[in-house]
Design a binder for these strands. Structure first.
Length: 865
RNA sequence: GCUGCUGUAGCCCAAUUGGAAGAGGUGCUGGUCUUAGAAACCAGAGGUUGUGGGUUCAAAUCCCACCAGCAGUACCA
């Protein structure tokens, strides 16, 4: 045998052949069932990292299996190509964002191709391309038409040094800008929003339809949407101003002894009396200055200031003081609460701190509460007391219980009404940045906001732009671009200079893939309805809320605009775990210095190169700052794509974190070498046409060695098919491939047609995992066509029937040994064999048998005194 | 603090869902081969299934409590 396994040679060869033959293009045959496999598309940051490799390999295996199973598979790839890093590269290095981005795309595309990922490259999209963002703008105009895109004043994160708005995730935990390091200010600015709150209820209830999603992702979305049911209640201030609160416990209204407003509440100024003004102002300033972290710090003492004013409790006309406190958030409910210290822990703490009255209105059955002596709020069940019309009603949220009765009473008396409140806020999509989709509207002094006419789309980003990084939005400074006539009346007007949040771009890309080159429409509805929903979506857990929620929102919106007939975009979701690298830490150092890059450390003697101190070894998510990354390039060069793919699939179940281990990578390379030798040896010996026998012609005529091998083959088919279809247990699937390979190596019947069947089956089952080596070996067997166009193997149940099993003999649950019995033996026969067995006799002797448990195919257990 | 996930051989991980604790890999030890090593092949050792209790004929698996690690979330009225 001459040829050695040389991945570098065969991988490039087959990648070219496949591309020329277009075998990964999405088939058109409508008689085949469709399957849409999708990985979350990457931001083109420069080069692939291992997290990408893992993500795309998982999806690729799924896509390849489905192809072999006869589906017409859509498996596309694209680029989430707008965003800040490109703009920062321009600021720091003077490269135009477009140039930087397209260079990165070219490099990463090449890397993806080296991995042998079976993409339909004809559908590639980049969100920064005018062909794509033209339709992003078109969708925005649909939102505008539907009244779901609007402008309003909002408090945003403002960086006073860089003179720009920052997203929440660009502000660190100390409230500083990630770029300038300046303390971020809250500033009121006029911004664009999408009315996602209109879809809050659907986004919540439709989670039930997503049984292919991990529970924890659904739970996170549920918490994010944050539905609570209750009532709004109309209070009035002593001076007659309306003051509405939201509460989930309107039944405890009679126990409200004060009110609390958020420091930012618009009524605070009106309510503040002259004597309290200084204190209130000081408190407001303090609250404004505090970062979110400070305000929500653990175990914080309650703080607040009395406004000097009172409100009237609408249910009993009691005069109650109005305070402000930062534990009431302007962003939730109405920014004002009624405080019921007896039955709400926060209100209780506040009342205790400021010596405010406590009124019990729910009495538990066993231990009556005393407002004087209670040490914590009582949120539990009981009977209503001191509550006028509610007295005696059972406290609770059920029908005819206190909450329900209270709401009916409020509605009947015009003092409130039933209300559902959501934590979910409308989506702020404005960004004062250059490298994003221009919002396609024009501000006209006489017509107001005028959408750019559809025929004029896309509103292109100007190429000549000053990206020095300081001052206002780069687009706002570009007068030649902003000054345009109003499309409606022709008077001089200005373009909107905000660009869109890049999450908009990724909220519909999966739809564009179904019709990626359409120049007339955002996508053809028939095509989208045919290929959608995505049958399997694979990506990181970090998108559990934002991207997935936004995409669900877009899908529902486009459905309501008549463009789609589906409710949910992603049928099944797999969130893959992180890739962790071997990491060295100096426990004596703090901050970022404690991470010692692995290229500076001798693995045999891990010490700090600067101080000589011993280092701790651990596994942590690969990152630049820890210096623990492994570059996919290096692995591909050393071992090839097939080894990298096999290792990643084998090392851990897909949803769990994966520890990168060079020794295990070697192990996979060894396995591929073993398969290579196994098949090449066979290829040299095989008869000119080594076709496998048909199942009908086998079984009875087989030798024991052949029967055993055939069992191993069909067991592998059964197990691997199960692993790749159901739980995506690729780690165990690979282990089954190894077992089959071992069985073939050990087989005593290498000239039998069963052996040929085994070799072919191994290659077919392994093809989705290691596409290059299996293709090469397939051709070395002189088999026709590409292995990737072969049908997925199906198992013959007859091959899995065994004649004899080992029956476990237990006495009092303890295993005492096994006896061989016929696999077909009945329950009674099994018991009889077991009783007669020497094993049982030895352990039971003359003891009385109290009970016998017989589990067919498994064991017999004697319970003795 | 709350919620969720995880804990099995030195390490990564399996275990037909309650039925003999072990599939696969890695590492380790020994052997074959070799002048020697590497590679390859063969063989072997390695366990209180995080801890304690409970249910059961039988528990890694189900229930309760606790411990450890990871993740999410945090005054949401």
């Amino acid at each position: 045998m001459e040829s050695r396994y040389n991945p570098a040679e065969i991988e490039e060869k087959w990648q070219q052949v496949w591309a020329e033959q277009g075998i990964d293009d999405t088939p058109e045959e409508q008689n085949k069932p469709k399957f849409y496999a999708l990985s979350m598309f990457p931001y083109p940051s420069g080069s692939l990292h291992m997290g990408h490799v893992r993500n795309y390999t998982i999806t690729d295996v799924i896509a390849r299996v489905r192809r072999m199973q006869g589906y017409r598979v859509l498996h596309p790839m694209g680029w989430d190509a707008f965003g800040l890093p490109a703009e920062n590269a321009a600021i720091d290095r003077g490269v135009h964002p477009a140039k930087w981005t397209y260079q990165n795309i070219a490099q990463m595309r090449a890397e993806l191709k080296r991995l042998g990922l079976s993409y339909d490259w004809k559908r590639e999209v980049a969100t920064c391309s005018p062909d794509y963002y033209r339709w992003t703008q078109w969708i925005f105009l649909e939102f505008l038409k539907a009244g779901l895109a609007y402008q309003k004043e909002a408090a945003v994160n403002w960086d006073p040094v860089d003179q720009t708005v920052l997203a929440n995730e660009q502000v660190d935990s100390e409230g500083r800008s990630w770029r300038s390091g300046a303390k971020v200010e809250r500033r009121l600015l006029r911004q664009w929003f999408l009315k996602i709150t209109d879809y809050a209820e659907q986004l919540l209830t439709d989670l039930e339809k997503l049984d292919g999603w991990p529970d924890r992702v659904k739970l996170m979305q549920e918490n994010w949407i944050g539905k609570s049911t209750g009532a709004e209640v109309y209070f009035q201030t002593e001076m007659g101003d309306a003051l509405t609160v939201f509460t989930t416990r309107p039944d405890t209204l009679w126990g409200a002894t004060f009110m609390v407003l958020s420091p930012e509440h618009p009524l605070v100024e009106t309510l503040t009396t002259a004597e309290q003004a200084d204190q209130i102002k000081a408190y407001q300033a303090e609250a404004a200055d505090k970062s979110e972290i400070d305000r929500t710090a653990e175990e914080r003492e309650k703080t607040g200031v009395w406004t000097g004013s009172y409100a009237i409790n609408p249910v009993n006309d009691q005069k109650i003081p109005i305070w402000i406190a930062d534990y009431v958030l302007m962003g939730y409910g109405t920014g004002a609460i009624m405080a019921v210290p007896a039955h709400d822990q926060r209100d209780f703490e506040f009342a205790k701190t400021f010596n405010l009255p406590i009124q019990v209105v729910v009495q538990p059955a066993d231990q009556p509460l005393d407002s004087e002596t209670m040490t914590a709020a009582y949120p539990g069940d009981g009977a209503m007391v001191n509550s006028g019309p509610l007295n005696g009603v059972t406290a609770g949220k059920g029908a005819n219980q206190s909450v329900d009765v209270a709401i009916n009473w409020l509605e009947a008396n015009g003092k409130g009404k039933r209300m559902v409140n959501y934590r979910l806020r409308d989506w702020l999509i404005s960004r004062q940045r250059y490298w994003g989709v221009p919002i396609p509207v024009i501000h006209c002094p006489s017509c107001g906001i005028v959408p750019v006419p559809e025929v004029e789309l896309p509103v292109r980003l100007p190429e000549e732009v000053d990206l020095s990084g300081r001052g206002a939005s780069p687009l706002a400074k570009l007068e030649s671009w902003t000054n345009v006539p109003c499309p409606s009346c022709g008077t001089p007007a200005t373009r909107e200079t905000d660009t869109m949040d890049t999450f908009i771009d990724s909220s519909w890309y999966f739809l564009r893939f179904t019709d990626a080159t359409n120049e007339q429409q955002v996508f053809n509805s028939a095509k989208a309805n045919d290929l959608m929903p995505v049958d399997q979506y694979v990506g990181g857990i970090e998108h559990a809320i934002l991207h997935l929620l936004y995409s669900r929102f877009f899908t529902k919106f486009l459905r309501d605009r008549g463009l789609l007939s589906i409710d949910e975009p992603f049928q099944r979701l797999l969130t893959q775990g992180m890739v962790q690298g071997l990491t060295y830490m100096n426990p004596n150092k703090g901050g970022k210095d404690k991470w010692i890059p692995s290229n500076l450390v001798d693995p045999a003697n891990p010490i700090d190169p600067q101080t000589g101190e011993p280092l701790e070894r651990l596994y942590a998510t690969m990152s630049k700052s820890k210096g623990n990354g492994v570059a996919p390039e290096d692995v591909l060069t050393k071992y090839g794509a097939d080894t990298a793919r096999m290792f990643i699939l084998f090392k851990a179940p897909p949803e769990k974190d994966l520890e990168w281990d060079d020794a295990d990578v070697e192990g996979q390379f060894r396995f591929l070498n073993r398969v290579w030798r196994l098949v090449m040896e066979f290829a040299e010996r095989q008869p000119s046409s080594g076709t496998a026998p048909s199942p009908a012609s086998v079984n009875n005529s087989l030798t024991n060695a052949e029967k055993d091998l055939r069992y191993a083959i069909h067991y592998a088919i059964q197990q691997i098919t199960e692993d790749v279809e159901e739980g995506y247990q690729f780690n165990t699937a690979v282990s089954e491939l190894m077992k089959l390979s071992n069985a073939l190596t050990d087989a005593k019947c290498k000239d039998s047609p069963i052996y040929a069947e085994g070799i072919e089956t191994l290659l077919r089952l392994m093809a989705p995992f290691a596409p290059h080596i299996t293709e090469e070996l397939w051709h070395s067997l002189a088999r026709p066509g590409s292995i990737h166009q072969q049908a997925w193997s199906t198992y013959d149940p007859a091959a899995l029937v065994v004649d004899e099993i080992s029956l476990v003999i237990q006495v009092n649950g303890k295993t005492r040994g096994t006896i061989p019995v016929s696999a077909q033996a009945s329950k009674a026969e099994l018991e009889a064999y077991a009783r007669e067995s020497e094993l049982a006799q030895r352990y039971i002797a003359d003891k009385a048998i109290k009970k016998v448990i017989v589990v067919p195919g498994k064991l017999v257990n004697f319970v003795v005194a």
